[in-house]
Design a protein around this nucleic acid. Structure first.
Lengths: 190, 190
DNA sequence: CAATCAATACAGACAGGTCTGTCTGTTTCG
DNA sequence: CGAAACAGACAGACCTGTCTGTATTGATTG
């Protein structure tokens, strides 16, 4: 092995994917480095070559995940059939809630586990939530026009609330409650 | 020492208060038993007499905290001046967000950290959320009458969303966004 | 009143495990 | 040869939970 180098390494990618999966399933603190290297099938030294510390790995995983998350919602909102963008967004949200292994927002979860507002991971999560809000605001604007400035923050709260509620209840129903309220708020009616 | 016994022990109470504070500030996993006993000023054996394992302590702390939380909101909602119960509730929510050391919902945080839906702590949190919802529903009913059945779940989502948003942003603004939306939904107008 | 007993809490060593991060040496492949 | 990854031992810290032995205190009893 040992062909590519730096940010495009195969081993690096395998580490990211494995850590992402394990961190999401069990939490960033509950999963040790040893478990990541065992399941990724790589050597410990290799991991520490690519990520100087576990905190660096956590941050890299969050960045890696954000790409996928934003892509998922943009794609799902884009390929809406006859649905409006807002309806398509909530369909994607519901789809996410229904997906196997759903355990809420990985960013929120990580921020809570890190329990330190100055941790690089937490700061990244803060940025992510702003970017996610911008995504929502863009979608709301397409439907609600200039009243979006007022309703977008409310819809964002509904979405956040639905995520934490769904994961705790183990049921996706909260997505529908949030959708109905959001449609009404945005003037789409139920 | 050694005067009282069982559930009324002074040492037991000191353990609960200390663990509650530490668990809330740093998380249930980040805080070790050694730190609890050091800051509570009790012996390790004493802790294990009252709580057979750390998981038992976590559960006991959650139960202890629920008493205080429900009391806080019931009291705050009860002693509203000219405010309606719903307005008083959101005033209390805002007060909580502004309180020093605010770090979101301890139950939600614990459930995320435990990352196991079958853990006794997680199951208790699930029950707590139901009880908290009933509290909200009761308050909404006093204002919105029979439409409460429809709007109470939405308001609950707004509240949950506001909590996680406020703690991540480090700002209490989300409480006001949620309040305005909730008042409108409940027919109180802005 | 004085001696004793039971309950409670104390201090802290200890075992056995896990954690992160470092390091040595080997293998694979271009 | 040289770059990358391999395997895995190791250090040092921390974790939970157990255990031994001591001190304090209220109640009991002679």
């Amino acid at each position: 092995m040992g062909r590519t180098r730096g940010a495009t390494s195969e081993a690096r990618q395998r580490i990211l994917e494995t850590a992402d999966r394990l961190f999401y399933e069990h939490g960033v603190r509950a999963v040790g480095i040893d478990r990541v290297i065992a399941e990724a099938g790589i050597a410990k030294a290799t991991l520490y070559v690519h990520f100087p510390s576990k905190d660096d790995l956590i941050l890299a995983v969050l960045q890696y995940r954000e790409k996928n998350v934003l892509e998922f919602f943009r794609a799902a909102t884009g390929r809406h059939g006859r649905k409006t963008p807002l309806r398509a967004f909530f369909a994607a949200l519901r789809e996410w809630f229904d997906s196997p292994g759903f355990r809420g927002c990985a960013f929120q979860n990580a921020a809570i586990e890190l329990a330190d507002p100055k941790h690089p991971g937490t700061e990244f999560v803060r940025g992510h939530k702003q970017r996610f809000f911008e995504l929502i605001r863009g979608i709301v604007e397409e439907t609600a026009g200039r009243s979006a400035t007022k309703v977008a923050p409310v819809i964002a709260l509904l979405v956040e609330g639905a995520v934490v509620t769904a994961v705790l209840q183990g049921r996706p129903d909260a997505a529908d409650v949030a959708r109905e309220a959001a449609l009404k708020l945005s003037g789409e009616g139920a």
